[in-house]
Design a protein around this nucleic acid. Structure first.
Lengths: 142, 142
DNA sequence: AAAAACTAGTTGCATATGCAACTAGTTTTT
DNA sequence: AAAAACTAGTTGCATATGCAACTAGTTTTT
């Protein structure tokens, strides 16, 4: 019996634990990591677009952003032409934390792909991307 | 940049939503599905062993079992030689629900692997299994 | 045999997450 | 221009999950 979803569950849950543990000293949890990273890489992105990019509910995004703001890792600027939109940017402090986040993601990738050949890693990446897209398309179509 | 954990997160979250939606009429959520399945396939299994098999914290298992008991889908028998252990079994009602669970898992697998060749599905299965094992070994080693 | 160590399960607490309903802007219809 | 529709973000509520501390049995040490 296929167990793709089961594996996704295990990989996801254990990844979250690793992230939580590693980020503990910065007071952020696994839930904020994705958002900080994307704000860093796409300065000025809105909460709405973050939700789209990460396939998160906008309430999930809202709460992660709130926490990152409180910790002073990001700042927001309200769009002057459309006051509904927040543009988000990392602060200096946030940029520093991001370096640790990059290292964490790299380390975790090594742990996860231990004993896999380069080509297998690439294949895992490609296949899991396809599975994600299928899942996303299914949900969207509803 | 590799995104294996990101894909696992997406696949997992969307799978959960699919399971929640499909199982709504049986009043169980995505969190109980795994446990009902394994009790069905391994009659008499204990909560502790379920936790091990699924890599869940035993408190997570405890809560899922509690709900399945309340719904009358499983029953428990205390081990006569060791009163700490619950042996779990599905009820008739639980067996009926399991047929729906099997169908759901099959349907979801088809959705997830849409447009993938048999061989690619097999490869995804193998690679994700390896990633899971690496994650599990890492956590264990601590 | 009593004490110490261990084991299966429970409970309190915290975080991550999604859905539904809502608010305050903005854009499109009429 | 007013009403209707839409959009970005917020909030209340619910579930899934893990950790730490605990309880009640069981096994191992001394």
């Amino acid at each position: 019996m296929p167990k793709l979803d089961k594996y996704a569950s295990i990989i996801n849950r254990i990844s979250q634990r690793y992230f939580d543990e590693t980020l503990l000293e910065y007071q952020i949890g696994c839930g904020q990591q994705f958002f900080l990273l994307h704000i860093y890489e796409m300065p000025g992105i809105s909460q709405y677009d973050l939700s789209i990019v990460g396939h998160f509910d906008k309430s999930t995004t809202a709460r992660a952003i709130k926490k990152l703001l409180e910790l002073g890792y990001i700042k927001k600027e309200i769009n002057q032409n459309d006051q509904r939109i927040n543009h988000l940017y990392t602060t200096e402090l946030g940029n520093e934390v991001m370096q640790k986040v990059y290292k964490m993601l790299e380390d975790w990738h090594h742990i996860l792909t231990k004993d896999l050949k380069k080509q297998e890693q690439q294949m895992a990446e490609t296949l899991m991307n396809k599975l994600s897209i299928n899942a996303i398309n299914y949900i969207k179509r509803k």
